[in-house]
Design a binder for these strands. Sequence first.
DNA 1: ACCTGAACACCGTTCAAGT
DNA 2: ACCTGAACACCGTTCAAGT
Lengths: 254, 254
Amino acid sequence: MSARNPFQAPQVKSRRGGPAKEPLSRDAVVDAALDLLTREGPANMSLRKVAAALDTGPATLYAYVEDVEELQALVLDRALGEVKTFDRAAHDWRHRLASLLESYFNVLSSREGLAQLAINAIAVGPNALRIIEALLGLLDEGGVERTAGAWAVDLLLLYATAVAAEQSQRAGNPNPLAPAALALSAVSASSHPRIHAVREQLVSGDGAARFHWALEVLLRGILETPRAQPPRPAPARRAGPAKPARPTRRHPRR
Amino acid sequence: MSARNPFQAPQVKSRRGGPAKEPLSRDAVVDAALDLLTREGPANMSLRKVAAALDTGPATLYAYVEDVEELQALVLDRALGEVKTFDRAAHDWRHRLASLLESYFNVLSSREGLAQLAINAIAVGPNALRIIEALLGLLDEGGVERTAGAWAVDLLLLYATAVAAEQSQRAGNPNPLAPAALALSAVSASSHPRIHAVREQLVSGDGAARFHWALEVLLRGILETPRAQPPRPAPARRAGPAKPARPTRRHPRR
DNA sequence: ACCTGAACACCGTTCAAGT
DNA sequence: ACCTGAACACCGTTCAAGT
């Protein structure tokens, strides 16, 4: 808070590139940071570099931002502004949900280091809220019960975030299949036969196919898994065993 | 520092605690680092602190370790040695799988910062391989097809790791429900009605119930979701919307 | 009162000099 | 040949002095 009103400026002063100083603001700091992240990568989004980009000393930023963690959270949410929370082309709720998560995933993947920010900061900025609200709505439309919906949103975002982070950190390495793939391809067939047998798939590059498969996995599971505590009025007994309710499942094949 | 030991006898090199030098080794470095992580937290597992704990200068460690990233990977795998890959009490493959993932989750949660390491490093050390091999075996036992099994292992570990990281970083904050819960509880009912309705569950503390619910979601989904591309020779048509054509760069590298 | 240069207490990594 | 102190190029954060 204490957000200096951005309209309060006396006059416009050449804004781009020029070293001419303009009054700082929280927004300007976040803009500069996201800009730096986009153009120069995550290693260059330090407070000092951001300050330098704004042509001031590192101490100055502390007037607008509590600490570096807060700056990162603000940058993340600013970037999440690009996530499209609805897709007017898709009418089926499942497709709209897939489309939303894909947009989220793509935005996180669009800048190196952004996904890493999303993992470290629990996103609760205005844009994160917009995304969560939309996801809850879609799941509700799909008939998912409320609490399960809340947990499901967490699970879906966790997954999309983690995959984005995993892939983008691979992107950081010059060699796309650097040490991990190398180690896996070297696994001996005798000591680890199953890994050996699927060593290709474990590191497989086809991110899109995997992403859609996992989304399908998550949605099916979410639609079919009731919470441990069934929604019927419980008897006098206290709330419950930590253990999952009995599987009750046939063994589906294929 | 560098308190020269007055007892600096050319004696046997008393191994614990004493500043008497013993020959370093990669193992000793990893041990010291894990020890530091366990006792002093992730912020204190810097190369410099590890070197200091071993009573030497920071440059010395580079004889045993490529860089800090490698050290972190080694520490992670050392810690993963504690994961129990089989549980003789449980006979059902589902329970054994749940038990294994729980053990993995518990180990990552046992030291602050460990889960964070697991997210950043793609785990391919010997203990990670042991865990992956065991998971592949369990899924095979459950009738999951090979490639789906490989993807499923990735998904299951990703989830367990992400949850551990999410929770442990909450643990870092003095107030367990610090800024995230606060922000969520403040969400207005009019602008975000669905979030408002489930604001409790979104941040809900009952980690165990959620973990089991999610595991159930993942397993059901995995068992019931065939891969997008059926194993028959595909016709000319493409399977999906097929996101971006990947760069296909093939630099020999290194 | 506000702003910020300089200082503080750290990093990871490199290198040349000492043994 | 090996080891490592010192140096280099960075961090985030604090504070006192200057305007």
